[in-house]
Simulated scan of single mutants.
Amino acid sequence: MKRIIIDCDPGNGIAGSNVDDGLAIALALASPEISLDLITIVAGNTPVTTGYSVIKDLLTRLRLDIPLVRGASHALVEPEQPWRDILDNRLHDPALKSLWHGVRQPQQFDAGNDEAADAIGQLICANPGEITLVAIGPLTNVARALKKYPQMASAVQEIAIMGGVFALDDYIKDTNFGFDPEAAWQVLHSGANLTLVPMDVTTQTLMTHQDLQRLALIEHPLVNFVCETLRPWIDYSIAQRHIPGCWVHDALVVAWLLNQRVATAADYYVDVELRPGVTRGKSWRYRPPLRLKVGINEPAGGLVHVLQQVDNAQLIAMIEHYFSGLVR
C-alpha cells in the first residue's frame, strides 16, 4: 500500500473554482492501494479557509477521520491580491454563475492555525522512505516544510507535483507555479525525488458529461460529491474554454501513482523564472548537453521525472474502475 499526503487547494462546490483537487482526493480515497495519511490545504485556486471547509465538509459527510491541516494563506513573496482578483471573480456573466444553482455548498468550519509545514515535515521525517507527497496546489506549504525540515528532501519517497507549463500557446505560466514562484524554485532545487505533471500533459486529459453520467450510476456518497461538483465545472469549461468537457489536471497525478502506464515520461532539469516581468513564474525544462549554453549556469537540484503524453481513455477508465469498487 502506498502511503501519501495530499497538499491541495480545492474548490469543489464553490462557483467558478476548479474541482480537480476534489477529484484527485476522491480517487485516492477510492483506491485500496493508497493510504491517505494526511491532507493539507494551501491558498491558490481558493483561499486557504475555503479549501479547508471544502475538504472538512467532505470528510465529515463520509465519516472519515483523516487528519486535515490548514497551511499557508499567501505565497512566500508573490503578492496575493492580483491572483485573488482573478481567481475569486471569474463569474461576471450571470449565466455562468447560474451553472452552480442548486449545488450543495460546503459547510463552513474553523480552519485553525497554519500548521501544514510542520504536519508534512514531521510525518515524512518520522517515516523515511515511506511517504509520497502529492502536491497539487501552489508549493508554499512544501517549500516551507523543506526549509524547516531539511532532512525531508531525502526522507520523502517522492514528491509528485501538478504544476508548470512549458509549451502551450495560451499560457506563459500556470496557477500553481505562478501563484508562488519562489516556492516552486525551492522545491525544484531541493534534491528530493520529484515527478512533475505539467499542464502540457494535463490539458490532454478530458472528462465529458458522458463520462460523468456513467459515474452517476454508482450510488455512493463520494461519487455523488464528484458528480455534483464536476457537472457545473464541465459546463463552465465548455462555455469558457471551448472544449467538449473539462481537464482533470490533479487526478492524473494520483492515477500515475496507481499505474504508470497511464502516461509517458522523461527526465529533465526543470527551473522556474523568478525575475519581475511577464515571464515571472514561467517554467522551462532541458536536458544537457545543451547546444547553446551562453549565460546558462550548471543545473542545480536533480533530474525531474516529467510526464509527457497521457492515455486519456485509460485515465477515465481507471477513475470509473476505482469508483465502481466502492460499492462491491
Rank of each mutant, 00 (worst) to 15 (best):
D311A: 03
L315C: 05
Q308C: 11
L258W: 03
S283M: 02
A263E: 03
V272Q: 00
Q309V: 15
R285D: 02
T264W: 00
Y322H: 14
G301K: 04
H321G: 00
I319S: 03
A265G: 05
R291T: 13
R261M: 13
L292N: 12
A266Q: 14
Q260Y: 05
D267E: 11
A313H: 15
D311M: 07
D267S: 10
D267L: 09
N312Y: 06
R280Y: 07
V306D: 04
P289V: 09
L307P: 01
P289G: 06
M318V: 09
H321W: 10
M318Q: 08
E298D: 13
D311T: 08
V294D: 13
V310H: 01
Y268W: 06
V278W: 13
P276N: 08
Y286H: 12
Q260R: 14
L326Y: 02
G302W: 05
L258N: 03
Y286Q: 09
G301C: 01
Y286C: 09
R275G: 08
E320Q: 15
I319K: 00
I296P: 02
A263Y: 00
K293M: 08
V310F: 05
F323D: 00
I319N: 02
Y268A: 00
G325Q: 07
Q314I: 08
V270M: 02
G277L: 04
D267R: 07
D267Y: 09
G325D: 02
S324T: 12
A313N: 15
D311K: 08
I319Q: 02
A263V: 09
S324D: 10
A265V: 05
D311V: 09
I319M: 06
Q309G: 10
Q314N: 10
G301H: 05
V304S: 01
P276Y: 00
V310M: 06
G281D: 03
R280A: 06
W284Y: 15
V306K: 00
Y322C: 03
R261F: 11
R328E: 12
T264M: 04
Q260E: 13
D271F: 03
W284C: 15
Q308W: 01
E320W: 10
V306S: 03
G277E: 00
Y286P: 07
K282F: 10
V310R: 01
Q314W: 11
N312C: 10
P299G: 00
Y268N: 09
L326H: 03
L315H: 01
L315K: 07
L303W: 04
D271M: 03
W284F: 15
T264Y: 02
S283L: 02
R280K: 12
P288G: 00
N259H: 10
S283E: 02
H305E: 09
V306L: 06
G325Y: 06
W284Q: 12
T279Q: 14
M318H: 07
A266M: 11
P289L: 09
V272D: 03
